[in-house]
Nucleic acid binder design. Structure first.
Ligand SMILES: [Mn+2]
Ligand SMILES: [Mn+2]
Ligand SMILES: [Mn+2]
Ligand SMILES: [Mn+2]
Lengths: 153, 153
DNA sequence: GTGTTAACGTAGCATAGGCTACATTTTGTT
DNA sequence: AACAAAATGTAGCCTATGCTACGTTAACAC
């Protein structure tokens, strides 16, 4: 038996061994932290493409929250480097924001098409895809795309 | 042109027409609100099955959070009627909690098996399933189960 | 039985992300 | 130019969910 002398660290560092499955839950929480950035980036890019600009009210209507929530969130996303905005002006994506929008949109579309290919009704597939998209690893995304290609033939 | 006289309601009730797609995002947020209850119920049921009881520390290790977070969350779940607990004692599921655990566990398992059937590596499938499970409608769940049955033959 | 320690609980802090109510600015109409 | 309305911003509230630090209780070893 090893003679451990070191006074164990305080706080949560010791404790019962962390279950390895906990990593999946931690990862899921990280994905949730990124989820809003992804949905906003997608929505902003879409609004700019469809109407030339993305306004706070448009985002609010698109995302189902109040303009106040959008305002605060945009400020946070700006601090995080995804968007740029000035008072009373339309919202723009930074280079990083555009990159996020592109990959998110593509992944969202793949997930949606995959669900539709399983025969899920459109309305349901839309909602499920909105949630699922943020939890799909590159591996799973590739598997979805590949299954889609096969079924699409 | 209709002569509208009514002073529009204050607050956010008027505003630009809400995009119908916003409903999906609202639904996704609702699912997130339920997610922790589902994961806790699953974990508690599992611990009880595996070790006879579910302790705060075990849940913390299983879920990847501190015991403090577990403590507070359990209190909230108790208020919501999913668990019962008393100071310094093990945590129990109520009837409702057991029902939630059962359906959550089953859905989780279906999602996981479906991903595995697509050839996703186990480690990745575990993590993806952990996030995806909470966003799978009954329709999609049925489609997964059905695809699984076919592939399983 | 006493002492140590693990488990549990509490206090207090932070961030994210919802909201309403109200203030300000911009924009469009006359 | 002036007014009305829409858009945007600000103040302040709430809940959920994470954390560290520290106090208290229960369990176990001797
Ligand atoms: Mn989404
Ligand atoms: Mn689960
Ligand atoms: Mn989960
Ligand atoms: Mn999610």
């Amino acid at each position: 038996m090893p003679s451990r002398k070191k006074p164990r660290p305080t706080g949560e560092a010791r404790r019962k061994q962390r279950d390895p499955r906990a990593l999946s839950l931690v990862q899921t929480r990280r994905q949730h932290a990124r989820e809003i950035a992804e949905d906003y980036a997608e929505a902003i890019a879409e609004l700019i493409a469809d109407r030339g600009e993305a306004r706070v009210v448009d985002l609010a209507a698109r995302l189902g929250v109040t303009h106040v929530t959008v305002h605060r969130t945009v400020a946070r996303l700006q601090k995080a480097g995804f968007v740029s905005s000035r008072p009373y002006r339309a919202i723009d994506l930074t280079r990083r924001g555009r990159a996020l929008a592109t990959t998110s949109r593509s992944r969202h579309e793949t997930v949606l098409q995959f669900l539709l290919s399983l025969g899920i009704p459109e309305h349901v597939a839309n909602t499920d895809a909105e949630g699922i998209e943020h939890h799909v690893s590159p591996e799973t995304l590739a598997a979805f795309a590949s299954a889609l290609k096969k079924s699409g033939l």
